[in-house]
Write a protein that binds this DNA or RNA. Sequence first.
DNA 1: TCAAAAGTGTTGGGGGTACACCCATGT
DNA 2: ACATGGGTGTACCCCCAACACTTTTGA
Lengths: 234, 234
Amino acid sequence: MNHQNDLYDYPRPAVAVDCVVFGVELDERELKVLLIQRDNPPFQGQWALPGGYVRLDESLDDAARRELAEETNLTDIYLEQLYTFGAVDRDPRGRIITVAYYALVKLGDYLPQGYTDARDAAWFSVDEAIRLAFDHDCILAVARERLRNKVGYEPIGFELLPPKFTLTELQNVYETILERALDKRNFRKKILSFNILDALDEIQKDVMHRAARLYRFNSEKYETQKQNGMNFQL
Amino acid sequence: MNHQNDLYDYPRPAVAVDCVVFGVELDERELKVLLIQRDNPPFQGQWALPGGYVRLDESLDDAARRELAEETNLTDIYLEQLYTFGAVDRDPRGRIITVAYYALVKLGDYLPQGYTDARDAAWFSVDEAIRLAFDHDCILAVARERLRNKVGYEPIGFELLPPKFTLTELQNVYETILERALDKRNFRKKILSFNILDALDEIQKDVMHRAARLYRFNSEKYETQKQNGMNFQL
DNA sequence: TCAAAAGTGTTGGGGGTACACCCATGT
DNA sequence: ACATGGGTGTACCCCCAACACTTTTGA
């Protein structure tokens, strides 16, 4: 075949995008995922990843961003293609191929707790998010694995935090994603050695113990360090 | 949308797979890619990645394997999904989304030099493979980058070599992919420390200097080491 | 005997890991 | 004063990187 036919009149699969939207609660040390409850068959009443069909006049990335904006009202967030799932029987309605994306959102800052939109939507702990519709369990598992790997060699933890954060908060994000404890002193040494954070002259407020210094991610510094071949392996 | 409509009567994009087939010549130290010359518009006469449309009754992986078998007569080779390319205008004939795969083939062993099939097919040095049809330049670039990363933390160099190979050949594969020289002693120490190779009681033949010992990849050992959490970072 | 590649050990330095105590703040 | 988390330094060890010569074989 090799793209050589100008006409391609055979039946086509449908193409969708699904988004694995990750967030963290700053206090609970848990990785969360945004799910939507289905109100139609198949899988009626079950929870599923937000997603939808790709339109002919939009790229895959645009489709993912559009769906995400529709579901979460969030724009300008970290979004990356994950994998494309194309088993023949993954959707009982017919042949639907889905291009999965994963997104990191600054839950604490922008999204009200217990956010829901017109459709029933809710944040779930990733461990509670089981028995999802379609092959979404599988997609979620792949996304968690990818996130774990990614965080090991690129500094994306900030994407899950508000613009100003403490090093302890950042460490909690990493521990949550990696599912293991990190040594506080080593973590700080490492992160600060990347030279991509600005220490602010500001400290936590409304906290009932010694207030921690706030930091901000500096993307110019990050680009500079990346040019210089810095590798951000934790 | 969210997969909630049982009917989906909107126009659908076409879905294709394209394969970046990598190989190495054992003597020339160059990474090669298999290309096919187009004999129809658009991009008539230009070289392109082998690929074709996905059928409704086969998974994406199956489609990639089928195309690969059709193009190279090879089965049972290393194949992995790369990325899905879905820019609106990537194909002038209309909306065609392509799921790209990359494959590693044991060129020296199985494929005759200068292999071609009915369509004009040929191996190109990856550096000479430019001005390809569609967005295939871009796909190739992404594949090279992925291969470079992958080889750094998973031992896939063997996939490009015949079953029996010398350590120097293996090192050449790594150097070719990574595009940098490696220290011979350190390379051998590292590779052998993974404990995934069997040293054979066999040596090179028909070589006009001291013959090197042959090794074979042992996939049981590999699985064992992987269970034990061995990481294969070079 | 020469050419060409195979094969082999050691050392120094940097970075990762492990580890414990004092400090600042609010109640 | 006490409870709670914030913040800091050091020592050891392992692994990575750098480095050069001898051996084997065929021509």
